[in-house]
Design a protein around this nucleic acid. Structure first.
Lengths: 194, 194
DNA sequence: TGTACATCAGTGAACGCGCGTTCACTGATGTAC
DNA sequence: TGTACATCAGTGAACGCGCGTTCACTGATGTAC
């Protein structure tokens, strides 16, 4: 039997889920604490017992996003662990693009303007872990000395593609999949020069 | 003597300038038609005679941004026209990053979510011109066949770096200038593989 | 085990705020004759 | 050139809206004895 502490079960959890759904369905300007409370089926003042502000709630959603993100990239790396470092980075790049595709709003939170959300300790920790994960993967190609600059480069490149895709700014009438593959390929080729 | 047609001189122009200033100083969520009217020193209903909505005004600001952007990159290309295609692309990349740095809010409009603004004809035209300009520069390195994919790649890479910089997401304690130079260098190296 | 009390999650009405929109208006500019 | 009228830019009050915040409250859960 599920434990339902307090009145509504873990409202905190429900609010986070409602928040993610709201982010997925609405422009971020329309996502308010009242809107999220409405979706969670509680009065608009109820969230105050769990989150002091929208920024707080968004920070927690972003932190959870990073956790899922790390798992997704970790799985990709794991599945290609018998291949070369370049193949592994390609696999992680594909996982990155897939994550951004499937979680556009959360991705925007994670890598967008910090101003929208509180930098909670768990968020700081998770985002740092994601960075370390990428840096390690790059280090296997470039060596540890060049890894920070290589990782920054890889990150910029894949992040830029994700953002342009999400904003539907890429030229139309080209296969997105082909664009992604080409981008990853050129990106790795550049890294080889380091 | 300056011609001052109608009552306040060209309020349309004033509103665009006030809008750019507001975007530079405030988070975009705080930029409203009323706020812009206030800054332009007119009543809050006055802008309706010139712009039907914020989205309209933002679209026009973005279009002007593209015009300045094209000039900035064109100047960079012009000044390096006696150098190699790669050097020219590097110069344009630097001009791109400088533009994004100096006009973060307008840059965000230009290359960010379309939903915030109206896709006016002048905006469509200007953004297409910017794309063509980049594609031509890349074509001088890769040849015309590979130019679209090469340009998409270059754009992703530089756009990603600009966004991460603006969001202050890059690892601290590294020289931003060095990061930029390294990124551009690796980017061009990747292009060479095409 | 039972009772009495403290704690705490969630309610719902009320508040002030800035927003976009509407509308009757004022007054300057443009135009017909 | 002058007059009369039409057009149009900008005003300011009023409206309804959703927001975050506050606050007295209800009622369930947890705890001391």
């Amino acid at each position: 039997m599920t434990v339902k502490p307090y009145h509504h079960g873990d409202l905190r959890e429900q609010l986070l889920i409602a928040g993610e759904l709201a982010l997925a369905e609405l422009p971020i300007a329309k996502v308010s604490l009242r809107e999220i409370a409405r979706r969670a089926g509680v009065s608009h003042a109820a969230p105050k017992h769990h989150f002091t502000s929208m920024a707080d709630l968004l920070g927690e959603i972003a932190a959870r996003g990073f956790d899922k993100f790390i798992v997704a990239l970790g799985n990709a790396a794991e599945q290609s662990k018998r291949q070369t470092g370049e193949d592994r980075l390609l696999a992680m790049g594909r996982a990155y693009l897939r994550f951004a595709d499937q979680n556009p709003a959360v991705y925007g939170l994670m890598f967008g303007q910090v101003s929208k959300m509180s930098m909670t300790p768990s968020l700081t920790k998770s985002s740092y872990e994601a960075w370390t994960q990428l840096e390690s993967a790059v280090a296997q190609i470039t060596g540890p000395t060049q890894a920070p600059i290589g990782a920054t480069y890889v990150w910029s490149s894949v992040h830029g593609l994700s953002m342009l895709k999400a904003a539907r700014r890429l030229p139309p009438h080209v296969s997105l999949h082909a664009v992604e593959e080409d981008n990853l390929r050129i990106m790795v080729a550049g890294l080889r020069e380091l």
